[in-house]
């Protein structure tokens, strides 16, 4: 099922029985509606670009409790969030929500690509997932002030954003260093 896996045969008895329940708790409520028709996979950019895991296969792997195999594969982070699967699913499974739920599982296991951790760090530190250091010059080149009127220009607003993040699951999980959360600094990602 998972091409990189050493184990060619997946032992169904080793499936994690609570996995579906966890996915449902983390936002994949409709997972059991899936009948594996494959409609979502027909148009999924991940499937079309050749990633080993994508909506349809992810759902089946969750059904069977293939938790470890899924955590070993980072395909889910390549999801474009295009939501075409959710638009066309005849069963209202909302496959993209299952991808998000699986990412939430992975975050709790620290099984996250460095790039995504960087995005979270950047969100916390500067208030934007994407931030380019030399953007001030670029902005001035087209006649705009160095900083946009966002949290970048309003330190108090950044504090507000950080206060929200402190009250979110991000704080409990500790995947990125946050003010007052020393534990995370020592974590290897």
């Amino acid at each position: 099922m998972i091409s990189e896996s050493e184990n060619i045969v997946f032992n169904l008895s080793e499936g994690e029985p609570r996995f579906v329940a966890q996915i449902k708790e983390l936002g994949g409520e409709e997972i059991l509606e899936c009948i594996q028709c494959g409609k979502c996979a027909a148009v999924c950019p991940m499937a079309l670009a050749g990633f080993p895991i994508f909506n349809k296969k992810l759902i089946q792997a969750i059904f069977l409790g293939a938790r470890e195999a899924l955590l070993d594969d980072s395909s889910i982070w390549a999801c474009q969030s295009c939501n075409r699967c959710t638009e066309i699913c005849p069963r209202d499974v909302r496959p993209f929500e299952i991808i998000l739920a699986m990412r939430r599982v992975a975050v709790r296991e620290f099984a996250v690509p460095a790039m995504s951790v960087e995005g979270l760090k950047s969100l916390y530190d500067v208030g934007h997932a994407v931030y380019l250091k030399d953007s001030g010059q670029t902005r001035q080149k087209v006649g705009l002030p160095e900083k946009p009127p966002s949290v970048i220009a309003f330190p108090k607003a950044l504090k507000e954003l950080q206060a929200i993040l402190h009250q979110s699951a991000l704080w409990e999980i500790g995947i990125i260093p946050m003010e007052g959360n020393e534990m995370a600094d020592t974590c290897e990602v």
């Binding site: 983390l26 936002g27 982070w77 999801c79 969030s81 998000l100 990412r103 939430r104 975050v107 790039m115 995504s116 995005g119 979270l120 969100l123 208030g127 934007h128 997932a129 994407v130 009127p149 966002s150 949290v151 220009a153 309003f154 108090k156 607003a157 950044l158 507000e160 954003l161 929200i164 993040l165 009250q167 979110s168 699951a169 991000l170 999980i173 995947i175």
Partner: peptide, 25 residues
């Protein structure tokens, strides 16, 4: 200008962590 606006937040960040945190931002 909606002064003080932040990241939406984008899909790879809070949406991939938890629904409440994403929704709050």
């Amino acid at each position: 200008d909606l002064e003080g606006q932040s990241c939406c937040p984008s899909w790879g960040t809070m949406p991939s962590v938890d629904l409440a945190g994403w929704s709050a931002v």
